[in-house]
Design a protein around this nucleic acid. Structure first.
Lengths: 155, 155
DNA sequence: ATAATTCCTCAACCTTACTTGAGGTCAAGA
DNA sequence: TCTTGACCTCAAGTAAGGTTGAGGAATTAT
């Protein structure tokens, strides 16, 4: 008898997952560290990923494009079933919440577009004229970069 | 004769500019370091800002909200007149280019929305099915966070 | 004149999202 | 068996966008 043929159910090494997803090996280790993925280990201590992890990593990539931080993504992934492999319905549910977020972002951008347009018209660009950057708004939810401490404009 | 009344042409200290703009003093120094603002100094070596700098800082805030990095903002500000105080027309021109960028972003988001919607429908979420995260696209222009090295999906 | 603010320059530290490298182990092919 | 190549851990470095603190000088208020 020949050795068992490699079925599609075979686990993936970290390098193989990296190739399939386009994510670097070091980034995958980093994701594990942050609790986004949780591969098993083989006898020798090497990571072994399930096929389903390809989808999981894909989700991470999509969510990142939508502006979620890894922390937020980790939270979103909490809602997935713990023991069993997530189904398509599981993914659909969690993706739907991304869609909501995306819609909010589009709406926000459209609002900004409107403000900016009128600001160009009037040339105002000075604080308070438009609420394009109302200090109160600045700490809100659209932030990608680091967040500064609240400056407390107390005057 | 009384001391000259404070005219609106008086220069601002860094603390005053901070209060007017809602940006912290340390951030303003940081912006100077990055070449975004260029205050003069008084006899004692303290920064003295022109009133026009309020508008300049406002622009920085708006541009940041639109997702530009400080480096990109610095570039955009290059186009402002060097010697004289920028006019409203100057600002209108530079703001118009922000508007273009914003439009591109909205378009991109809308495109993503469409992809995501169909992905939720089919439950695919797997690489290549949607080009939601086509590795080739990933390094493109919408990135806020750090950029990873090109993973070279050579298979 | 003196005390309290404000400002100055550095240098070091923080978070996010990773990469790079050192030093060593595991697995697979010739 | 032996030698690559892929993996392992842990520490340190990177870039962006700032913040915090030390040590000292300039302003402002009383």
């Amino acid at each position: 008898m020949p050795t068992a043929p490699k079925t599609p159910a075979d686990p993936l090494s970290i390098g193989q997952l990296a190739k399939r997803t386009g994510v670097s090996v070091s980034a995958l280790r980093f994701y594990e560290d942050k609790g986004l993925i949780d591969p098993g280990r083989n006898a020798g201590g090497q990571r072994r990923f399930k096929r389903a992890d390809v989808r999981r990593v894909s989700f991470i990539l999509i969510a990142q494009q939508l502006g979620l931080s890894l922390g937020e993504i980790a939270q979103a992934l909490q809602s997935l079933p713990d023991g069993r492999t997530p189904t398509q319905a599981d993914w659909a549910g969690i993706s739907a919440s991304l869609l909501e977020r995306l819609d909010r972002q589009i709406e926000e951008m459209t609002r900004m577009r409107k403000s900016l347009t009128s600001c160009i018209g009037c040339g105002c660009l000075s604080l308070k004229a438009c609420r394009l950057y109302n200090p109160q708004d600045r700490l809100s939810d659209l932030g990608a970069g680091p967040h500064f401490g609240v400056p407390q404009a107390d005057e």
